[in-house]
Structures are given as structure tokens and as C-alpha cells.
């Protein structure tokens, strides 16, 4: 469609589009949109969907070793939700004209990114608590804002996800609270998980605003409504009191309440580590991709058998 329009017409449409966004009108799949809007959204949404799917792996690691049947049932339900969240977002992303299979191919071939948090290992049971509480907690802060974004299908998927995410957050916090009431070893286990997941959780919000190349356009088009640093601050402000309430220490010597700003001040994030994990050199990058590829390949016969059955029976 784009190539039928003259440069002049495109400029005119872009101005109309910007005005529409400024008025708070939501964009729907068949509406005209600038090419860059479509590309940025697709990049963001596919990355988000992949994160939900890869995010099942670190938790799947503890399914067979959950400490009770109840914990196992809850973890299973939580992981199933993550699969669902991946599907909601793939479904929303498909409205932009890219097939889900193509997005999955990009993930499996290593061309698409997913959240770097899932490249950290889950070493003890308390990590299930830390992930639900911190990682899903950070995701909630991010997604609550995305629920008001300018693209209809993405916003609707976020509304659905946010409703379910609170369960993830609370079950994680409850695991931590329970361990903190337990033996000395259990308390140390919880603190160890906290120490390992705190900083990577802060990294989930992405680079500093001054160093975030895509933010300008995304903010203008209301794909993003708040900056990385603002969201990170909001997460810290709401999480620190939760940690203190159950006796967990935040592994940051510079963390301190600032009565002037009414926010917590905090130490500098290790951006070298962040960049390194994004580049593929985190502790589990290769393992995660191998697990995804294996799952995809091992399920191939099921997909083709079901298709052959449907064709044979004329369904």
C-alpha cells in the first residue's frame, strides 16, 4: 500500500496520524500507520511475546522439585499463564501482518531478542519466589503502562495479562515471606535469591533514558508512555517496603529513602553485565535457546500429524 502513495501523501498521512495519536485515538490493525510505527511495534511486541515463552524455562526447571503438591500446582498454573501471555501477544502482533511462525523463526534463529532476565539460572527453590515477586513485579509496572498504549490489540492483550499477573506476583512474594519465617537456612536461601535477582530485575526496564535509542519515537507515538528510568523508579519505590516487611535486605549499599524527592535513591546498575547478557553471553543464553529449539523440533511431528488428520477428515 505504501508504495502506491507519493512522498507528499505519506507526509500528509503521517501528520494526520500524529494528530490522531495526540488526541488519544487508539490505532486499530487496518488503520493506516507509518511504516516505522508498525516496525517498532512489531519489534517490541515480538520481543515481549518471546520473553513470555522463554520465561517458562527457568521456572520449568523447578516443577519436578517443588516442595509440595500445592506449590507444584501453583507453579504449573503460573507457567501455563506465561504460555498464554505469549499467545495473547503473538495474536496481537499478527494483526500487524506478520505470521506467528515467522516471529518464532526469528527467535529460534537468534535474530529476535527476549528479556535478558531469563538468561539467569534458577539455582534454588527461593528463586521461584524471587521470580514471581521481582520479575513479574517489574513486568506489572511495565505492562500496566503498556495497557494504555496507542495500539488497540497490544493494549487489550496487556489488560488481560495485567489481570493475571497479580497472581504471579503474590504467589512469589508468599514463597519469600514463608521462607523468611522458616529456619536460618531457609532465610538465607531467600536472601540469596534476592541478591541474585534484584539487579537483573532493575535491568529489565532497559538502559538509561539518555541511552535508549528507540524511546523518542515510541513516546511520541504513545507506544511507550513512561521512560525506562521512571518505570524503574516506580518499581523500586513499591518493592523496597515489601522486602523490608519480611526482613529481606536489598543488595544495594547506596539504597536510601530520599525525603526531598520522596523516592528511593539507588546505586548504579552494572551496565557492562547488562550489555553482555544482551549480546548472548549471560549464564544461560545458549541453554535457553537450545531448550526452545529442542521443544520446537520435538513438537514438529505433533503439528504435522494434527494437520494431516484434519485434511484427511476434511475438517
Amino acid at each position: 500500500m505504501e508504495n502506491q502513495l507519493t512522498a507528499e501523501e505519506i507526509t500528509k498521512r503521517e501528520m494526520e496520524f500524529d494528530a490522531k495519536i495526540a488526541k488519544g485515538i487508539v490505532v486499530e490493525p487496518k488503520d493506516w500507520m507509518p511504516d516505522r510505527y508498525r516496525k517498532q511495534l512489531l519489534r517490541m511486541m515480538s520481543q515481549h511475546a518471546h520473553s513470555e515463552v522463554v520465561g517458562m524455562l527457568p521456572e520449568g526447571n523447578w516443577l519436578t522439585r517443588a516442595p509440595s503438591l500445592m506449590r507444584k500446582a501453583v507453579l504449573l498454573a503460573k507457567i501455563q499463564d506465561e504460555a498464554g501471555h505469549g499467545l495473547y501477544i503473538y495474536s496481537a502482533a499478527e494483526t500487524l501482518g506478520t505470521d506467528r511462525a515467522e516471529m518464532i523463526d526469528q527467535l529460534l534463529s537468534g535474530h529476535a531478542k527476549y528479556s535478558s532476565i531469563f538468561n539467569y539460572p534458577t539455582l534454588n527453590w527461593a528463586d521461584m519466589g524471587a521470580i514471581g515477586w521481582l520479575v513479574d513485579g517489574a513486568a506489572i509496572v511495565n505492562q500496566t503502562v503498556l495497557a494504555k498504549c496507542s495500539y488497540g490489540p497490544y493494549s487489550r492483550a496487556m489488560v488481560r495479562i495485567c489481570k493475571e499477573e497479580n497472581f504471579h506476583n503474590k504467589q512469589g512474594y508468599q514463597i519469600m515471606a514463608y521462607l523468611m519465617k522458616g529456619t536460618k537456612e531457609q532465610q538465607e536461601m531467600a536472601q540469596d535469591a534476592m541478591n541474585r535477582f534484584w539487579w537483573p530485575s532493575l535491568m529489565m526496564f532497559g538502559p538509561h533514558d539518555t541511552n535508549s535509542p528507540n524511546s523518542g519515537d515510541l513516546m511520541k507515538w504513545k507506544v511507550k508512555l513512561q521512560t525506562n528510568d521512571d518505570l524503574r523508579q516506580r518499581f523500586i519505590d513499591r518493592t523496597v517496603p515489601q522486602a523490608e516487611a519480611i526482613g529481606l535486605k536489598i543488595p544495594d549499599p547506596d539504597l536510601k529513602w530520599n525525603p526531598q524527592t520522596r523516592h528511593y535513591d539507588f546505586g548504579e546498575i552494572n551496565w557492562e553485565e547488562f550489555n553482555n547478557v544482551i549480546k548472548g553471553n549471560g549464564p544461560c543464553n545458549r541453554l535457553r535457546m537450545k531448550q526452545r529449539r529442542d521443544a520446537h523440533e520435538n513438537g514438529a511431528w505433533v503439528r504435522s500429524a494434527a494437520l494431516a488428520y484434519a485434511e484427511k477428515h476434511g475438517k
Binding site: G84, L87, S91, R100, R156, L307, Y309, A310, K315
Partner: peptide
């Protein structure tokens, strides 16, 4: 609610239940 991928209507219904009706 959204979409699902499925080889036939029957599996589409089951997938839809799992994706859009867990609660």
C-alpha cells in the same frame, strides 16, 4: 478475545479454552 492457531475447529475450540478461558 483474540486468535489461536489450530489444524481444525475441534482443536481450535480446545486451544481457545486454554488460552482465553483459564479463569
Amino acid at each position: 478475545a483474540g486468535n489461536v492457531h489450530a489444524p481444525d475447529a475441534e482443536i481450535a475450540l480446545m486451544n481457545a479454552r486454554d488460552v482465553y478461558g483459564r479463569r
